[in-house]
């Protein structure tokens, strides 16, 4: 006899399998607890009580599918989230990147773009922006569109001003946007060397010859298997001695690549790939 919770887990598995088989979106290896919460919330907003009721709907109703995929994959962030991470990047990573004539950066899971523009601001202030190309990728088309536009609510920018200063910013955050009414538009110059692209970490392939991979608070949504897959993907994408920057409460401990990296800022979870075997 299955319990109520086991039946719900069965329904979730069937729904995720259906989404994958019908459309190729693969959420089967997402961390279960937050996925379940997001799914329950989206379905209840759509007036669906039983998860299994969503199965026929998802097969035949593209609008519903889009809404569900958005709910399962969207992430929220803000400018200069975790200022100490940016401070460590300035101090410990910029000098390493500066030794290369041309620098490739992959921001994996850039969401709505706040953190990729934060990185661009930092690179500009450190004099590196002109020889950098940043690939900013996300699975969520809607988020990517917002990232490309680079238009944000002015209040969120003002709230992030302190974070910018705490990151050892050299001017003011408002130097990097025009405000009009309640909106802030990121300066076009900051976008010049950023390429936004759709990329699915669960199914897509490597980027080559990358010097820095920035992937913060993305792996928290994946289970161990998918996390390992993604970390191996990162390892292959990095040049020898390349840098991997994770979120402040993510770690390489107990992962498949633990022995391939050495921490260069333990507190801020910034790692360098080992050179050689």
């Amino acid at each position: 006899m299955k319990s109520e919770a086991e039946i719900e887990n069965l329904e979730i598995r069937l729904l995720l399998e259906t989404i994958f088989l019908r459309y190729g979106y693969d959420f089967r290896q997402y961390a279960q607890a937050s996925l379940k919460r997001r799914m329950r919330q989206c379905l209840s907003e759509c007036g669906i009580t039983l998860i299994s009721e969503a199965i026929p709907k998802v097969i035949h109703d593209r609008t519903f599918l889009n809404r569900l995929v958005h709910a399962l994959s969207v992430t929220v962030t803000h400018f200069f989230r975790d200022p100490l991470c940016y401070r460590a990047l300035r101090k410990q990573v910029i000098p390493l990147l500066a030794t290369y004539p041309f620098v490739t950066i992959w921001h994996a899971g850039c969401a709505t773009g706040e953190e990729v523009y934060s990185l661009a601001i930092l690179l500009r202030e450190e004099g590196l922006y002109e020889r950098v190309r940043i690939f900013a990728t996300d699975i969520n088309d809607h988020s990517l569109q917002i990232a490309k536009e680079g238009i944000y609510n002015i209040n969120s920018m003002i709230e992030s001003s302190q974070g910018y200063l705490d990151s050892a910013g050299k001017g003011a955050l408002s130097d990097y946007y025009h405000s009009r009414y309640d909106l802030a538009r990121i300066h076009a110059a900051l976008k010049e060397n950023i390429v936004f692209a759709a990329h699915n970490l669960a199914t897509d392939h490597v980027f080559s010859e990358t010097h820095l991979i920035f992937c913060r608070n993305v792996l928290i949504y994946f289970n161990k298997e998918l996390t390992n897959r993604v970390l191996l993907l990162f390892e292959k994408s990095l040049v020898a001695g390349g840098i991997l920057c994770l979120g402040s409460h993510e770690s390489l401990s107990f992962t498949a690549v633990e022995n391939r990296f050495i921490p260069i800022s333990r507190d801020q979870r910034i790692y360098q790939q080992k050179v050689g075997p």
Partner: peptide
Amino acid sequence: PPGYHLLVEPDFTLALSTDP
């Protein structure tokens, strides 16, 4: 941690999220 939700996974590990 401040700024993160704390969740329990079915395999008795902890998970974090930055959901709203």
